[in-house]
Design a binder for these strands. Structure first.
Lengths: 343, 343
DNA sequence: TTGTATGCGTTATCAC
DNA sequence: GTGATAACGCATACAA
């Protein structure tokens, strides 16, 4: 038992003294690119391990200007999609030598000045924002060292392309082809009246998807969709769909802003209203969260491959770090239709 | 557009010069406890805001010995329970002025020396481990500055109480009363043969729960439970339950190590085997994840209140920070039975 | 390849 | 209350 309250970590100086070398040598031993005699490095590393020494990242950050920290800003970490995303990114970042710093926006999606200021203090090497209404300009203005990476849906969200002229990198997610395929399939299966189950009202992503679907429906000569107001949650979706049908809504196809809402819709239709899915009403989700393939739902949905997405984001992070002064970087990935049992 | 590659943040010195004060004054202005004339502080804060200045946490960390970083070690961030937990803790930590550092163990639950070393470098003020086989001793030996907080289930996990004599704090989760209530209820509803659907083999938590359930069943004169090998996942659980029943397994009550597995069991029973839940087979979950109340499952389960748990963890973190040399700290919380439709 | 000197941005100590 | 000075632990430019 180490009962003393000391608990201080050994410094490079201690390692140097123990290994009978200079302080700089220790530093070099831990920097792969530094030139040092291999045997000497090995010796130092051995001593360091014995002493349980680790370079202090804070000190290293001050000296090099790199924190090895990447900040992730998410609206609700507990929702399946965000969870999956943070999980994948954390794994990828860990492999690349970065630690993940997680920040949550408030329930209203706001990421206020205070939080931004606070985050900035940690000097993240990169900031990745999934929070759909944390505008890149807001971020770019605040984060002076790192260049923010912004995940967006440009097909119906032109505002994000030029946001105050601030520099930020982008991951563009194309959804048109996948939505087109999904709607064609639903129409072929007999769908005539569509309804749009939205996410949170403030959400840019939900607006982008809604606008895209509306234009696709119009292009096919289908009537404009009914609007069902959701908020990405299961409960609200279930209640809203129940209310919609009871109020006389007659849609035979529901396009949900996310999978969780789609699950709520399916349950409301089946258990609350005694309707059959997909025979009476088809349901389309978005995200392809893990529960989408659970047998009780077996959700037809749109997927953006996690591996593909994290790889693209990591490319953005790395490229920006290699060339800090580069112009805006962009990666593009596309959603895919995953056909299962609800549409 | 700031096209130059500079992007450097203003320092306290710059603020001091602009505000016509000394560097120390700036530091004091940002430290609530420091003594400084209110008007002067306001002035400095105003100038700082204009200059978009934020204290550098790395530098602050070096000077004060506090990083304002709390590390969370989780096995799989994408599973609903962990996601909910990280979400709640991140929110609580953010409110308390800490940033959340997330680390993932590998798929086999391992948190190797390399990762531990790496984490240590960030000097987290506290380390909270949910990874069930990252033993506290392992952690305490590695993390010299912070005292690890360990979440454990002591009723059937005596090994964790004294782990190498290293100092660590504990959150004890009591499950006996809740399990006792659940089993009594299931027995009253007609259950005679129980089966245990386990989590990952290496998991300490699953072992603790299994042992507890076995002893409770024995105490009631019920036969020892059948063992169904799961791994916390939906797919494995569904497959395992299917195989169990097809091989002649006749349990009329399944106790799952977690909710996700319980959902897999329910689906396998209903859709794969045409059995009724709970009439033919009762199913009990653990965790009370959000999906547990989705109508397709309506899972009876054991809950450990999130708010209560995060509050307890925050108390541990704060107390340890206030008194670094204190002896081992412990908080205790209890699981609760949540009765729904599957048991 | 190696060591010396200096700087990174902040807070703590100590005088005043 | 205020300001000078010395840490904090590391990496780098430079000279050797």
């Amino acid at each position: 038992v180490d009962g003393d309250g000391k608990r201080s970590r050994p410094t490079a100086a201690v390692v140097a003294r123990t290994a009978q070398v200079s302080r700089v040598a220790v530093s070099r031993a831990f920097n792969p690119d530094a030139s040092i005699r291999p045997e000497k490095r090995a010796h130092i590393l051995r001593v360091a391990q014995q002493l349980n020494y680790t370079p202090d990242m804070a000190a290293r950050s001050m000296a090099t200007g790199r924190s090895h920290l990447v900040a992730l800003i998410v609206p609700d970490l507990s929702s399946p999609w965000e969870a999956q995303e943070v999980d994948a990114m954390t794994a990828a970042l860990q492999d690349a030598g970065f630690a993940t710093l997680v920040f949550r926006t408030r329930d209203d999606f706001s990421f206020d000045e205070k939080l931004l200021t606070y985050m900035k203090g940690f000097n993240p090497d990169s900031v990745i924002s999934y929070a759909e209404n944390v505008r890149p300009g807001h971020l770019a203005r605040g984060v002076t060292r790192a260049v923010p990476v912004y995940v967006c849906y440009p097909e119906a969200d032109p505002g994000t392309t030029a946001d105050g002229g601030y520099l930020f990198d982008r991951l563009d997610v194309r959804m048109r082809a996948a939505f087109e395929a999904a709607i064609a399939r639903m129409q072929a299966a007999g769908a005539r009246r569509f309804a749009l189950l939205s996410g949170k009202a403030a959400s840019l992503a939900t607006a982008a998807r809604a606008q895209l679907v509306r234009s696709l429906l119009a292009a096919r000569g289908l009537p404009p969709p009914d609007e069902i107001a959701g908020d990405y949650s299961y409960d609200t979706a279930a209640r809203a769909v129940l209310a919609y049908v009871r109020a006389g809504g007659r849609a035979d196809a529901i396009v949900s802003a996310n999978d969780v809402g789609a699950c709520g819709a399916v349950d409301a239709l089946r258990h609350g209203l005694g309707l059959r899915v997909p025979q009476d009403v088809q349901v389309l989700g978005f995200d392809d969260i893990r529960m989408a393939h659970w047998q009780s739902y077996d959700l037809t949905t749109l997927q953006i491959d996690v591996a593909e997405r994290t790889a693209a984001l990591m490319r953005l992070v790395r490229r920006r770090l290699d060339e800090p002064a580069a112009g805006p970087l962009t990666e593009t990935i596309a959603a895919r239709l995953v056909v299962r049992g609800t549409a």
